[in-house]
């Protein structure tokens, strides 16, 4: 499929038409992979900035580790985006098969795992916008975080406390809140696109498609909220 500006607009604002047009085309995993890669790259930049904060924390104990941690975080972000893409695809594939009573799993062809993963991949396009907004928030908030510096005598307890103090920083709290809410909002947009993908790509009814997408999204939101509650001491 040739991916252009019109196709992007279709995915975002008229996913029904986009997926209808996709039915007659050969299953293409490359285009959604590019979309996911774009999301991964933008997220990687944000992750690099966050990783650098930890590097500044350890600038005295381990000079030069900041850049390394940033790179590790960036690579981790790219891997995580692709990993979650596959997971979303697999989960939705399994649920949709259960709902449509399709037995057995196949890797290729219409209705296969790869086909579902590809459908989900197109739905990642709003998340690229979301990742871009999160990146802008990172540029605004992350430099103003006051970062304590650990020295040679730092121990595990000290590192934990320093991390806590970073989380308690108002700028970090604003960034965490902003990135969480924006990710959630754009997830809704992606979920909406996925519903149309399942309707046209897997022949599910609107009700079945909504149910297929809603279940993992709700579970994901619950997990996200729980992790945010435990990760940020100030929200406990």
């Amino acid at each position: 499929m040739r991916f252009n500006k019109d196709k992007v607009k279709e995915i975002l604002f008229n996913p029904s038409k986009f997926y209808k047009g996709l039915v007659n085309e050969e299953n293409d995993i490359r285009s959604p992979a590019i979309i996911v890669l774009i999301v991964g790259i933008i997220s990687a930049i944000s992750a690099y900035m966050s990783g650098s904060i930890t590097g500044q924390l350890l600038s005295k104990t381990s000079p030069g580790i900041g850049g390394l941690l940033g790179i590790i975080a960036a690579l981790g972000a790219i891997v995580a985006v692709f990993f979650f893409w596959i997971i979303w695809g697999l989960v939705i594939y399994v649920i949709s098969n259960r709902i449509s009573h399709v037995r057995g799993m196949k890797l290729k062809g219409p209705g296969s795992i790869l086909h579902t993963v590809a459908l989900i991949g197109y739905g990642y396009l709003p998340q690229a916008i979301g990742a871009l907004i999160v990146l802008i928030l990172g540029v605004i908030y992350l430099p103003s975080i006051k970062i304590p510096v650990l020295t040679g005598t730092a121990n595990q307890q000290a590192i934990e406390s320093a991390t806590r103090s970073i989380f308690l920083d108002p700028s970090m709290q604003a960034f965490n809140l902003g990135s969480s809410v924006i990710s959630l909002l754009f997830l809704f947009w992606s979920a909406n696109i996925w519903i149309f993908g399942l309707r046209h790509g897997k022949g599910l009814s609107s009700k079945q498609a909504i149910l297929t997408v809603a279940v993992p999204v709700i579970v994901y939101i619950i997990i996200l909220m729980l992790s945010a509650t435990f990760a940020i001491p100030g929200m406990r």
């Binding site: 020295t151 406390s161 308690l168 108002p170 909002l185």
Partner: peptide
Amino acid sequence: EIGSMFSLVPNASSNSFPIPLFLLFVVI
């Protein structure tokens, strides 16, 4: 010396909700 261990900032302002963020959420 507490820099070798940690420092805690007063979290008096941590409960204040950032208005610009809220407006951004609404718009998006």
